[in-house]
Simulated scan of single mutants.
Amino acid sequence: MDRRIQKSRQAIMDAFMKLMSEKDFESITINQIAEEANVNRGTVYLHFTDKYDLRDQCMEAHLNQLLRSCMPEEDRVFTSKTALLRTFEHLEQHASFYNVMLTSKGSVVFRHRMETMLQQSLNEHLDSIGFDPELNREITVQFLISAGAGLLEWWITRSIPYPAAVMVEQFWRLLERLQLQSAQSDEDE
């Protein structure tokens, strides 16, 4: 892609994110985005169909960057401790974007997309390990998605109260204890 085109596209995305941090998504107009990006309105429409397309492409770009930088091709799941640490570190480095997306009124769309990505990753992992047939897969996946997405959202929206390494260590211990609890309960019965 031509550098000028890339530069205009990035300026539009940056302007959109700045406006998202200041106001409600529904009140943002293409004219405001163009003005903030210092481009004309037609340039915005050359790159994006409308503000919904712009929002969706911003989300996809950041989530794809998260996948590329946090998980190598051979480890495309969030279930290794190393991948989890890389994920939290990436979120920490890009906290402003994730905070805006998780706290704006459009956050439902972003959270849904993030949960879909987690669900795909978890399903791939469960397929690879031979999932316990005594557990309901759908309930297990939903539980883990809710826990993971909820924890990430809490961490980001509370201005990262703990370092990434602490978050990963605590989350990992909780996951391990859940497995131990189930084994102990079976033995107690």
Rank of each mutant, 00 (worst) to 15 (best):
E22M: 11
V44E: 02
A34D: 04
W172L: 05
N31W: 05
M71N: 01
M59A: 08
N31I: 11
W172G: 04
R3Q: 10
L46P: 02
D50S: 06
R173K: 15
Q65M: 13
N31V: 12
C70V: 14
D56S: 12
F48K: 01
T116H: 05
S182F: 05
A61N: 11
M1P: 02
V166G: 00
H94I: 04
A183F: 06
D2S: 06
Q181P: 01
F143V: 13
T79E: 14
T140S: 10
L63A: 08
T79M: 15
L63Q: 11
M71A: 04
S8W: 00
T43Y: 02
Q142V: 01
M71V: 00
E60G: 07
Q6N: 12
Q6L: 13
E134W: 08
R41W: 02
V77N: 09
E89I: 09
G148A: 14
K7M: 08
D186T: 15
K7L: 09
P133T: 12
E35Q: 13
F171G: 06
S121P: 03
V39H: 05
M1K: 02
L126N: 08
Q93D: 12
Q65S: 15
V141C: 01
E26T: 10
R68I: 08
I30D: 07
S21G: 14
D132K: 13
M13N: 01
R9K: 15
S182D: 09
S27R: 07
Q142T: 06
D186P: 04
Q65P: 02
K51G: 01
T79R: 11
I139N: 07
T43W: 01
W172R: 06
N136V: 07
L122E: 00
K105Q: 13
Q181K: 11
D132I: 09
R177H: 14
A37T: 02
F16N: 03
L151W: 08
E169F: 07
Q170I: 07
L175E: 06
A15Y: 02
I156H: 03
A165T: 12
S121A: 08
K23C: 06
E189Q: 14
H47N: 07
D56T: 10
E176D: 13
S104W: 00
V108M: 03
L180H: 13
E187R: 10
L54D: 05
Q179E: 15
N99Q: 12
W172P: 04
V166P: 00
L66V: 00
L122V: 00
L122K: 00
V108P: 00
R111H: 05
G148S: 14
V44T: 03
Q142Y: 04
T82F: 04
N40M: 01
R158A: 11
G130F: 02
L102I: 06
K7Q: 14
W172M: 05
A165K: 15
H112Y: 07
S128Y: 03
I145K: 04
L84A: 09
L144E: 03
W155C: 04
L85N: 08
S27M: 05
Y162T: 02
Q120K: 14
L91R: 06
E73Q: 13
R68P: 01
N38T: 10
T87L: 09
V141Q: 01
L175N: 09
L144T: 04
Q119M: 05
F110E: 00
H47G: 04
I145S: 04
S121I: 03
F97G: 06
H62Q: 14
T140N: 05
T49R: 15
S96F: 09
T103Y: 01
T116F: 03
M59I: 14
L175H: 07
N64R: 09
W172A: 08
E26M: 13
W154H: 09
F97P: 05
E189D: 13
